[in-house]
Design a protein around this nucleic acid. Sequence first.
DNA 1: GCCCATGCAAGAGCACTGCTCTCTTTTGTT
DNA 2: AACAAAAGAGAGCAGTGCTCTTGCATGGGC
Lengths: 230, 230
Amino acid sequence: MSVIRGARERARIEVTAAIKDEARRQLAAEGAAQLSLRAVARELGMVSSALYRYFPNRDELLTALIIDAYDAVGEAAEAALAETADDAPDARWIAVCRAVRAWALAHPHEYALLYGSPVPGYAAPQDTIAPASRVGLALVAVARDAYAAGELTAPAGEPLPDELRTDVERFAAQLAADLPEPTLAGLAAVWSQLFGLIGFEVFGHFHRVVEARDAFFDHSCAALARQVGL
Amino acid sequence: MSVIRGARERARIEVTAAIKDEARRQLAAEGAAQLSLRAVARELGMVSSALYRYFPNRDELLTALIIDAYDAVGEAAEAALAETADDAPDARWIAVCRAVRAWALAHPHEYALLYGSPVPGYAAPQDTIAPASRVGLALVAVARDAYAAGELTAPAGEPLPDELRTDVERFAAQLAADLPEPTLAGLAAVWSQLFGLIGFEVFGHFHRVVEARDAFFDHSCAALARQVGL
DNA sequence: GCCCATGCAAGAGCACTGCTCTCTTTTGTT
DNA sequence: AACAAAAGAGAGCAGTGCTCTTGCATGGGC
């Protein structure tokens, strides 16, 4: 696919990457709000207007960083999945959760970009939706493998309300996931709840509330696993 | 407490309130990043420098808005608590959760300010911690009343890890809450998970994933209730 | 090997921001 | 009425995103 074209095109790719790298550095150091196109350009020894040859505006640069970040968390989750391929479902589950949390704690500003407040007036462009779903799919994979191995129990609680049926059927179709419907609904809920847990820690809401963070996270993740029947 | 002093002091209070109101309007309309001191001043017919007599900088204005917003969600949660004083614990639980969600959906930008990415380089000042805990305390109240009525079952799952003990003991002391230790740990987890659920909806992560939002939320909240033994 | 078109960089400039400083006006108190 | 404290006005600084015009150089077709 990526045939080497002219030297011009190659230079363009390199400069684009350099811009993203420097932007990521500033993002990690100061946060999205402090990310300045002019500062990026300055650091790269170019004038600010030159940067607009590569990214039409600030939001597009941020979008590029967002996609990369989604891919980074997704990759972390998938790596945890692969590394624990032979383990018991609940161990795999917690491994994936831990991987996501570790990434979030290591990249708080990028985490905020993904799961904190969306950028003002910003509707997630098409390009972000696939990378954004990788973590969720990793969680689904754990449940699916467990189900295939007969190690998944039906989640407790009331039966699925009818209104949720069509959503859940769509999940099943999209994921080609051979999973019980209550489990699919539970996965969606637990997916978001995991980010509540992580977000509260990253954004400091557990400050002076929960101090034994590792133990608390593991304990809570085990509860999430139980919630989907793992 | 609020003795009426001079007319000057009264004017100051009124102008301060007007600034906050206008700032809140802009926050609701455009989001925190677009909130401009100059625009607020302009709208109020004063020059921007005059505004600095009331708020030393933008962050202080935001902090004031944050405190008000925490109080607003807290009040919504407490109102739901009061209105359902005679209901069953699980009904009260869901009522509180729904109240928080309703507030969040009605005030997405303020919600983002509270539970989204923290403002750059911003450490929550002392004044915010009490208002910030009101929602959590409302959830605790439901569990406490249920426990007093003997309607709380012990949460399922492994026993509390030792590392969590001191945190949980602190909860118990601070809350003067006569609750089993696993319940307290579960409450902390579920507290954050509730905001994962709500945050994903407010920030659009459920777009094209979960469409039957009301049913999904209720169903998921019931699972949260079960997680704390309600 | 030349030559032009294209791609890129530079710089000036616009409108905006947060914030500070100085100067003037208002206003409550003595 | 006089004074001091508080509030407002305005200019100004440094920074931002973004646009437009100008100049340069380099890569691909002849």
